[in-house]
């Protein structure tokens, strides 16, 4: 069948986006050892921010990526400093409840401001397509794909090549080891939370140009980020790429063969199966916090 190459192409494009989108989730999970249930709503915050900047000021969502990242970074610092840090010290499990509440709060806040209508960021190039022989892809998807790769690559370089990145990995691998070389875990938690939330909001810009969104899509996005994280295994950028591609293929193929309505079900079923059968992910990688 001729449709297969087209589906594979779509899967790859979408998979790269999911990898970038989930990177912040897997990073905070791996380094802080917490699961942030508000993550999906953070993504939507970015989408609505990009939507507002585009609709009211005419700023292209790609140009406003740094704005979303910056806003997310500050938000991450703030929530870590004011809320999460204290709770995770006293009772790590309660962070789940805390971020669950935060998620509901953000969804309702967005609903209050933007109402529940489906919004979309309709950039002028949304309708244009590239045609490569038998394959057709929209320019938007290609742009999102390339940006996702560049941004994921930047995070990789940050983690591998900079002192800050090394300190983040050190805390993830051995918190006490990090302390005895003079790294302050509290500071690393702050930076990681900032980075993770920055990634969430900026991926929201890309999400917003890919498809329509409502204030209550956060839960679904969190599940996707969770799935990507457990499929790849925590801890490495490569893992997020593997997980992202998995989700890309799963969604594109399910949507084509079973219908759009089955897409999210497939994610959920995959999540349950992974939790049951391969909780360490496809690559069998170690969790950040272990060793």
């Amino acid at each position: 069948m001729d449709i297969i190459p087209q589906l594979i192409l779509e899967s790859l494009l979408l998979g790269a986006f999911y990898a970038f989108m989930s990177l912040g989730f897997s990073l905070t999970w791996g380094v802080l050892n917490i699961i942030n249930l508000a993550y999906g709503s953070y993504i939507l915050l970015g989408s609505y921010l990009a939507y507002s900047l585009y609709t009211y000021l005419g700023i292209d969502p790609i140009l406003s990526l740094p704005v979303s990242f910056g806003a997310g970074f500050l938000l991450g610092l703030l929530t870590q400093r004011v809320l999460i840090d204290r709770v995770m010290r006293l009772e790590p499990f309660m962070v789940l409840i805390l971020t669950f509440g935060l998620d509901i709060f953000l969804a309702n806040l967005l609903n209050l401001v933007f109402r529940a209508d489906v919004r979309s960021i309709d950039v002028p190039y949304a309708e244009r397509s590239f045609i490569l022989g038998p394959l057709v892809v929209t320019e938007v998807k290609v742009a999102v794909f390339l940006l996702s790769l560049v941004l994921t690559g930047s995070v990789y370089l940050l983690l591998q090549r900079t002192w800050t990145g090394r300190s983040i990995r050190a805390v993830a691998l051995d918190r006490e080891g990090a302390q005895i070389v003079g790294i302050s875990p509290t500071r690393v938690f702050l930076i990681t939370s900032g980075l993770g939330t920055g990634i969430a909001l900026s991926s929201g810009n890309l999400y917003g140009v890919l498809q329509g969104f409502t204030p209550f899509d956060g839960g679904m996005l969190t599940v996707k980020a969770f799935l990507v994280s457990i499929v790849g295994g925590l801890g490495r950028v490569e893992s997020a790429l593997a997980g992202g591609l998995f989700l890309g293929f799963l969604e594109v193929f399910t949507a084509f063969y079973l219908g759009e309505g089955w897409k999210f079900f497939a994610s959920l079923i995959a999540m349950f199966l992974f939790l049951l059968l391969r909780p360490r992910g496809l690559l069998g990688g170690k969790y950040y916090g272990e060793t």
Binding site: S167, A170, D174, A178, I183
Partner: peptide, 20 residues
């Protein structure tokens, strides 16, 4: 308390965290 998932050189460099 080594960083087992990092290279020897990265471990050493992290030892110089306060002394870059």
């Amino acid at each position: 308390k080594l960083f087992l998932g990092m290279t020897v050189e990265e471990n050493l460099l992290l030892g110089a965290w306060t002394n870059r």
